[in-house]
Design a protein around this nucleic acid. Structure first.
Lengths: 187, 187
DNA sequence: TCAATAACTAAGCGGTTGCTTAGATTTAAC
DNA sequence: GTTAAATCTAAGCAACCGCTTAGTTATTGA
């Protein structure tokens, strides 16, 4: 009885995700989403409820796309070397042509304010604490490592990763690779 | 012949600076500035031309206030130990009561977009390349250091500092101190 | 063929953005 | 005391925000 949707929801979310990735959450307006996704605002709200819904779907899609890298980290038993590989893979993943966009999630963490949406805050926290747990798991694989240092080392690595999401917009590829190299020198 | 200004420009900029520090540039509206500075919008535009002008003056004031820390780094001849002291001093400086606000400048660097104001971009770049130059200067003081590594090490330190401006909103003080400790372990 | 139903377009809601204008008020020189 | 200049307040500008409503168009089963 009804008309068919004239767009594929996964396809338009992919376009939305890339826009959020470049601009962050707050700076991406629904008008911009409308243009980028190629559908009317009404259709956006009908399919995804609201702007928050579009973003949450974007994070989901981002998660499946980054899964290839995270999977390698999850299955790795190289200890800290596995984390180092993750950093380099992540650098590749965050590049679009010659431009580094950083990480969709950490880019958005950066713009968290006191009055930010709790739903989005929760989604971002879940994402980054997952990564930190993978760091802890991998660090524990190294035999000679001091157990008491592992939590602090995981914080250190998260700090480096968060830094990279800013640095990737400022530094060149050679510099970014140098940063990763030095980050792991003593771990 | 004329009426006197009923506010002190330095005092109201101090209040504006603290607001930008907490919220960033984009998220701070002129209405918020109006309330925080305690003067009318007209007076803001009369004194500082526009919102950009208020922010540039805020950076200037921030610079003079952080000068105490930067001066110590400038005059230090402890090599990398001087930089480490700077990191800890900076952590103290960026704390307001129990809350860490990070750095006004790096907080704003985080929200840079493709269409961000070039004037502000330039001011931020000047500020952070100054700090990086101080890192290079201090690293050169260490006798045993490999000259060829200094530039990469400066990038590494900038990455850690940028990371801290995000981490300081997420991690607790003990964790932040641990991050700094590990950052300097092998330098 | 035709009525039911879902997806479409376009217009507009109230609220906020950075910024300006109009006009009243205060100050100071003459 | 008068007048000129700078400051003040308050109202309002066009543009944008996230979101909704009204009405049209297309697709379907009966």
């Amino acid at each position: 009885m009804a008309r068919k949707k004239q767009y594929n929801e996964t396809e338009v979310i992919d376009k939305a995700m890339r826009l959020f990735w470049r601009n962050g959450y707050e700076s991406t307006s629904v008008r911009m989403l409308e243009k980028e996704m190629g559908i009317n605002q009404f259709s956006i709200y009908a399919s995804f409820k609201n702007k928050e819904g579009v973003f949450l779907e974007s994070i989901k899609l981002y998660n499946t796309q980054i899964k290839a890298i995270t999977n390698t980290l999850e299955k790795s038993n190289n200890g800290v070397e596995g984390i180092k590989d993750y950093f380099f893979d992540f650098l590749d993943f965050s590049r679009e042509g010659a431009i580094f966009k950083g990480c969709l999630v950490t880019n958005t963490v950066n713009e968290i304010k006191e009055d930010s949406s709790p739903v989005i805050m929760a989604a971002l926290k879940r994402f980054s604490s997952n990564i930190r747990e993978l760091f802890v798991r991998n660090l524990k694989q190294d035999d000679l490592r001091d157990e008491k240092e592992i939590e602090a080392q995981a914080d250190y690595l998260m700090n480096a990763l968060l830094g990279l999401s800013i640095s990737s917009k400022v530094f060149k590829e050679e510099q970014l690779k140098g940063i990763i190299r030095i980050t792991f020198l003593h771990l």
